[in-house]
Computed example of a mutant assay.
Amino acid sequence: MSITQSRSLRHRPSRTVPAVVTAIILFAVGCAAVWAGVAALQGNTHLVETAAGIGTQTPWNSPAGYTIAAVLLVVGLVLLIVALSPGKYNAIRLNDPAANSTSRARSSSPVEYVIGRRALGRLARTRAEQVDGVESAAVKVSPRRIDVAVDTYLVDATDLQETVRQRLEQALADLDPATRPRIGVKTTTRTLD
């Protein structure tokens, strides 16, 4: 019997930025080549002659040649490093609820529980908006921090800020994340127009 290791649910996102940048550059070069080819077929060779003239008149050991080569090298290296480096984790690991419960027998295979950062942000926004006095809420979630911006019409929002923080602390206690993010609440008082 072989033990296979499962893939983690807490994966890192793919790097699409280098692929998009490369695709845009290749698309632009391809469009320019097609445009120059169609113009040359119609008898207008000025564009092709100009591009070929610039390429043949610029020596490789000139400052312009070195500058172009250095810029292309830096752009290529940046795209390569960004493509190979992993992204940030897109989920927060939760503790196993069966670890505290004796009613369910533990299985031999490990079980992983996660919640996505967007889902945690929606949960935090919903819980914040359920507090009396909150007009709207905006949430930004990172693996270590949950920042909530609350809009209200209350003049003194000190108690509201603490109530929202307590409601979010309770929501986090219900989820039981493996590493508990800090909660920051900022209130903004709106004026009636």
Rank of each mutant, 00 (worst) to 15 (best):
T4A: 10
L9W: 06
H11M: 12
H11E: 13
R12P: 01
S14R: 14
S14E: 09
R15S: 10
P18D: 01
P18L: 00
T22V: 02
I25W: 07
L26N: 10
L26E: 07
F27G: 12
V29Q: 06
C31H: 04
A33V: 06
A33M: 07
V34M: 09
V38K: 01
V38E: 07
V38M: 06
A39S: 13
T45E: 04
T56P: 00
P59N: 00
W60S: 15
W60I: 13
W60P: 11
N61L: 14
P63E: 02
P63G: 04
A64I: 12
A70K: 02
A70R: 03
L73E: 00
L80F: 08
L84Q: 03
S85P: 06
S85I: 11
G87A: 15
G87R: 04
K88R: 13
N90P: 01
A91H: 12
I92P: 07
I92Y: 05
A99F: 08
S101C: 06
T102Q: 15
S108P: 02
P110Q: 15
Y113T: 04
I115M: 04
R117F: 15
R118N: 12
A119L: 07
L120Y: 01
R122L: 09
R125T: 07
E135W: 03
V139T: 11
K140I: 04
V141E: 03
P143R: 10
P143S: 12
V148E: 01
T152W: 11
T152E: 07
Y153P: 14
Y153K: 14
L154W: 13
D156H: 13
A157F: 10
L160P: 08
L160A: 08
Q161W: 07
E162A: 15
R165W: 07
L168P: 06
E169M: 08
L172C: 14
A173P: 00
T179L: 01
V185I: 13
R190Y: 09
T191V: 05
D193L: 08
